[in-house]
Simulated scan of single mutants.
Amino acid sequence: MAQNPFAGRWRIVWMSGWDQDYVDMDVPGHITFGAGSSGSFQFGLVQAQTDCKLDAQQSKRIQFTWHGFDEGDEMTGRGHAEIVGDELQSHLYIHLGDDSAFCAVRPATAARKPTRQRRPD
């Protein structure tokens, strides 16, 4: 089985739907992919567990569904991400709610600005 290029923790450095102060309100915003199909993310007061599936055609694209909470309110949704250079360019959808593009980087490069601040396709 091929190694998962998404595995590990990524620091969220930009979101189109929320400013960075909100993203880092409780802890530094992040998304983590496990070696298998599980993962998690937190930004602001939103915390969730993910169920991920690596795209069989493109190993640099992953899709996920998620279940979590925002200040005690249960939420679900979906998302997808792609590795572009050394960035994770992603989009997160809240079921019957908001959506946001976001950019994340590995912790070693978290201090720099993302190269692209637009919605990934």
Rank of each mutant, 00 (worst) to 15 (best):
D121A: 13
L96N: 14
F41G: 00
D73G: 02
Q47W: 03
V23D: 14
H80N: 08
F64C: 10
Q42D: 01
R78T: 15
P107S: 11
D26Q: 01
I12F: 07
C103M: 07
M75S: 00
D86E: 11
P120D: 14
W14E: 14
G79R: 06
G77P: 01
M25E: 08
A81V: 02
S59C: 02
T109W: 14
Q47Y: 12
H30F: 09
S59E: 12
G29R: 04
T76F: 08
F6D: 06
Q49S: 13
T65S: 15
P114A: 10
Q58F: 11
S90T: 08
R61G: 06
Y22E: 03
L45T: 03
S90L: 11
H30L: 03
H95F: 13
I62Q: 15
G72V: 02
Q42N: 00
M15K: 03
L54R: 02
D73C: 04
I83Q: 08
G72I: 06
Q3C: 05
I83P: 05
K53W: 08
A2S: 09
Q49V: 12
P120N: 13
Q58L: 08
F41K: 00
I31D: 15
R112V: 13
D98E: 10
G39V: 02
L92Q: 10
Q63D: 15
A104V: 02
V27M: 08
G36K: 01
G85E: 11
K113A: 14
F102T: 00
A81C: 12
L88P: 05
H67F: 10
Y22A: 01
A48W: 04
S59Y: 13
L96S: 13
F41W: 03
P5V: 05
